[in-house]
Design a protein around this nucleic acid. Structure first.
Lengths: 190, 190
DNA sequence: AATATTTATTAAACCAGTTTAACAGGAATT
DNA sequence: AATTCCTGTTAAACTGGTTTAATAAATATT
């Protein structure tokens, strides 16, 4: 739990008693490569902290799969939309490799927020952080070409290209495997 | 200020004393049509509540302008990215029509959050709301065709088409005025 | 009312992606 | 070692948008 502690304390100065109060609720989960944490129609009433591994957050519709995000170690995550709205998920959360994570129920998370003003603030600030992440992504989607997005991802998260198949990355970038292949070729000869 | 009160109370049950504490900080601003609330390079240290009118939130780069959002009456808003990160704005906030709004400084907003656990919670929940809004938008951008997005916008915010020029809407939908015009034509003959 | 300005449409040429399908290499399974 | 499955590349035809430029319609200004 050391990493969760650190993560929370990176947002807010909270005393040990309050922190331990919250930490008591987390329970450990192990996932094998390829396992699903969440599938469409399921209820999303937990928040997760990724201790180790990589999770792929995506949806599927008639036109195929769309990767929304890759979560890697040290991040809090969940299917936030379904979690907040308390509606059945319409997404997948899939372990692209062996994962260890800690889970807290929404009920217990809110208990923590009730219990301590500092923890409530942690909730606010981490939500702010999630917003910023999404905002940046949204901006890239809107302002950059596919090729630019590919190049940036390569710079910013080179690890992903080692651990995740290229067709998932293509989807994350908003194109087909064929499209990404073309971009890579185009880049390779200049 | 009645509308702000109502808006805050839609998020959280807060007593009159705490609410008034926060409300004391807001000051009224009037904007003429075409006026700028925020321009690139400016500091964004206020949060706003739109009492009346419509604000267009957009950026400009070498390839032209990109509309990110239209805010209409009853919404809290600001250039959230610059506000949170405390960096100079890289966006515009422009009044597309005559506007009345209320402004609270970041300092005073945080004072409110310090002052009351309930107000802190309001901060968390409204941030959550902003996240959801962005999430939905992001999803539409990723999962729908331009035509579908146009049709949905038409259904969901028909008022926009009355009050905002079409080339801004085109930009909001992620295409050029020419592109939108083609879509409209295509739709009109079936 | 006449003029200037802004906004929307249309046409033509173009382009970065798509879809479909064939193929090749690597990893996992038998 | 042979087979199957999974992943990535390539080619060909296609498509929904783009850019540029001309024109038309609506709005604001004089």
């Amino acid at each position: 739990m050391e990493n969760i502690k650190q993560k929370i304390r990176s947002y807010v100065a909270v005393n040990d008693t309050d922190l331990e109060y919250s930490l008591q609720f987390y329970r450990k989960i192990s996932l094998k490569k390829g396992a699903f944490l969440i599938r469409p129609e399921e209820t999303v009433d937990h928040f997760y902290f990724l201790e180790k591994g990589c999770m792929c957050y995506y949806r599927e519709d008639d036109t195929g799969m769309k990767v929304m995000e890759f979560f890697t170690a040290g991040e809090f995550f969940t299917d936030l939309y379904a979690y907040i709205e308390e509606i059945p998920s319409s997404s997948f959360l899939n372990a692209t490799e062996e994962c260890i994570l800690y889970a807290i129920s929404k009920q217990d998370a809110e208990k923590s927020f009730d219990h301590s003003h500092d923890l409530e603030r942690f909730g606010r600030l981490s939500m702010q952080d999630g917003f910023m992440q999404l905002f940046r992504r949204n901006n890239q989607l809107k302002n950059l070409s596919n090729q630019e997005r590919y190049v940036r991802l390569l710079q910013k998260r080179p690890d992903l290209f080692q651990r995740v198949p290229q067709y998932l990355i293509a989807s994350y970038l908003g194109l087909t495997p064929v499209g990404l292949s073309k971009i890579r070729k185009r880049l390779s000869k200049q």
